[in-house]
Amino acid sequence: MPAEHEHTHPHPHDDPHAPLHNGERALRIGIGGPVGSGKTALVAALCRSLSEDLRIAVVTNDIYTTEDADFLLRNGVLPAERIRAVETGCCPHTAIRDDISANLDAIEELEESLGPLDVILVESGGDNLTATFSKGLIDQQIFVVDVAGGDKVPRKGGPGVTSADLLVINKTDLAPLVGADLGVMARDAAARRGDLPTVFLSLVEDRTAAPVQDWIRSLVR
């Protein structure tokens, strides 16, 4: 038994895996964030817009279901052979940071079956503000929050908000309905993130997710 007060849960900044090797391979982008923040809708929008000229595939993570992969398939954003579903059977962050083997296997299967790819999106299951991806799994991390949680979310920080390579503040169209001040969110995000970029998005108003799409394209180039 662990001693009283002993911390046994991995710290979100601890990464037990060596970073990915550089070379001729697909850019791997992790997309994480709380439940309901709009991760799967963002993935769907990116698949539609990026697949026009890039070779793209997706790995989704759910605890006990393939719900997110099924959503992508129903909406026809990519052919079925370009989507893999991982049932983690555990806390979502475990499969993207601590034991990444199932996700690595899914990526390997995609690469072997499809040939060379430009981008692989890895969507985490819904998690909290501590969710971070291992650099042994992905190259860049997008973290998605939404204004429905209130304009205090960026101020609360957490590794997902403060250290993600791109922070997406989603569902801006809901701001007037929930009394969220986007100016406050922009100010607090800048204070927490320094020079790391933050974008505001409404997939109701922009179905191509233009600012996120542009950011990914800049990395591929």
Rank of each mutant, 00 (worst) to 15 (best):
H9T: 15
E6M: 14
A191M: 14
S113I: 02
V204H: 14
G23M: 15
E123N: 10
P10N: 12
R97V: 01
L201G: 03
T94Q: 11
I96P: 00
L219D: 09
T88F: 00
L78Q: 04
V204T: 15
E112S: 12
L117H: 04
H21I: 13
D99C: 04
G157C: 08
L20A: 13
S101G: 04
A186V: 11
G194V: 13
G158S: 08
D98G: 03
H17R: 13
A26N: 09
G126W: 01
E123L: 06
S163F: 14
N22Y: 10
A57W: 02
K156F: 11
H93N: 10
T60A: 06
V184Q: 15
C90V: 07
P197F: 05
G136H: 06
Q140C: 08
P154N: 12
T94L: 08
D139F: 07
G125M: 04
G23D: 15
H93G: 01
A85V: 00
R82I: 00
G125Y: 03
I29T: 04
P211M: 12
N170F: 10
I142A: 05
L110G: 02
H7W: 07
N22K: 13
L177Y: 13
I169F: 05
L219V: 08
H21W: 12
L196Q: 10
H17Y: 14
A3R: 13
F143Q: 05
L54K: 13
R217T: 14
D206K: 03
H11M: 11
D15F: 13
E52A: 13
A148T: 13
